[in-house]
Simulated assay, not measured.
Amino acid sequence: MEAKVVNKEAFKAIGVKWVGTFEQAAKGEIKVFHKNFLNSKKQINNAVNPENILGLSYHITDNGFTYYLALEVEEGTTTPEGMEFISVPACTFATTEYKGATVHEAYTALYTWIKQNGYNLSQSDLEHLEEYPGSFDPVIDVPELKINIPIKGI
């Protein structure tokens, strides 16, 4: 696994929200949610890059989390009905690109890399930022994504 540290500027996004448990996600609800988003993303105007799907995980609890699938948008973009506006602050991330069937192992390896390199996890609400290619079909394709975990310096 190749990991690196990147700084991302603050950005705005519009997308859809899923709230559930880790068990529900493991049973495939996120895949169906992702597939549905691909069919509705054309409703989002002024996307900065419509082929970069963002997955934002927030409020991790003992058994669940809130997950958004979204597109980065230009300032002032109108939020379509049934979607939500998300404001993401500037952040430093540990990041790696991954393609394979065991995404959880990539996360584990990145968390290990963070610790081994003397970084700490950031204390923000954002737990993970995933980036998927627009052509990725979550139901039939092997997972392909960039994993970003917020960190702070030593």
Rank of each mutant, 00 (worst) to 15 (best):
Glu84Trp: 05
Glu84Asp: 15
Glu84His: 13
Glu84Lys: 15
Glu84Thr: 10
Glu84Ile: 11
Glu84Val: 08
Phe85Thr: 14
Phe85Leu: 11
Phe85Ala: 13
Phe85Pro: 03
Phe85Arg: 13
Phe85Cys: 10
Phe85Asn: 11
Ile86Pro: 01
Ile86Tyr: 07
Ile86Cys: 05
Ile86Asn: 03
Ile86Ser: 05
Ile86Thr: 03
Ile86Gly: 00
Ser87Gly: 09
Ser87Trp: 09
Ser87His: 08
Ser87Met: 09
Ser87Ile: 12
Ser87Pro: 03
Ser87Asp: 11
Val88Gln: 02
Val88Ile: 11
Val88Asp: 03
Val88Cys: 06
Val88Pro: 05
Pro89Gly: 04
Pro89Phe: 06
Pro89Met: 06
Pro89Thr: 14
Pro89Leu: 12
Ala90Lys: 15
Ala90Val: 12
Ala90Ile: 14
Cys91Val: 10
Cys91Lys: 10
Cys91Ser: 08
Cys91Trp: 02
Thr92Met: 12
Thr92Cys: 12
Thr92Pro: 08
Thr92Ser: 11
Thr92Arg: 09
Phe93Arg: 01
Phe93Lys: 02
Phe93His: 01
Phe93Leu: 08
Phe93Gly: 00
Phe93Glu: 00
Phe93Ala: 04
Phe93Asp: 00
Ala94Leu: 05
Ala94Thr: 03
Ala94Ser: 03
Ala94Asp: 01
Ala94Val: 04
Ala94Glu: 00
Thr95Leu: 03
Thr95Glu: 13
Thr95Tyr: 00
Thr95Val: 09
Thr95Ser: 12
Thr95Phe: 00
Thr96His: 00
Thr96Gly: 00
Thr96Glu: 09
Thr96Cys: 06
Thr96Leu: 10
Thr96Arg: 06
Thr96Lys: 04
Thr96Val: 07
Glu97Ala: 07
Glu97Ser: 00
Glu97Arg: 01
Glu97Phe: 00
Glu97Gly: 01
Glu97Asn: 09
Glu97Gln: 06
Tyr98Gln: 12
Lys99Trp: 07
Lys99Met: 13
Lys99Leu: 11
Lys99Thr: 13
Lys99Glu: 15
Lys99Phe: 05
Lys99Cys: 15
Gly100Val: 07
Gly100Ile: 10
Gly100Met: 10
Gly100Gln: 14
Ala101Asn: 11
Ala101Asp: 15
Ala101Trp: 09
Ala101Pro: 06
Ala101Ser: 08
Ala101Cys: 09
Thr102Arg: 03
Thr102Glu: 12
Thr102Leu: 11
Val103Thr: 10
Val103Lys: 06
His104Thr: 10
His104Gly: 03
His104Tyr: 13
His104Ser: 10
Glu105Phe: 04
Glu105Cys: 09
Ala106Glu: 10
Ala106Lys: 04
Ala106Ile: 05
Ala106Thr: 01
Ala106Gly: 12
Tyr107Ala: 01
Tyr107Phe: 13
Tyr107Gly: 05
Thr108Ser: 09
Thr108Asp: 15
Thr108Lys: 15
Thr108Leu: 14
Thr108Trp: 06
Ala109Pro: 06
Ala109His: 12
Ala109Arg: 10
Ala109Asp: 15
Ala109Ser: 13
Leu110Thr: 04
Leu110Lys: 05
Tyr111Cys: 11
Tyr111Leu: 15
Tyr111Thr: 08
Tyr111Arg: 06
Tyr111Ala: 07
Tyr111Asn: 15
Thr112Pro: 02
Thr112Trp: 07
Thr112Ile: 04
Trp113Gly: 01
Trp113Pro: 04
Ile114Thr: 02
Ile114Val: 14
Ile114Met: 02
Ile114Asp: 02
Ile114Ala: 04
Ile114Glu: 02
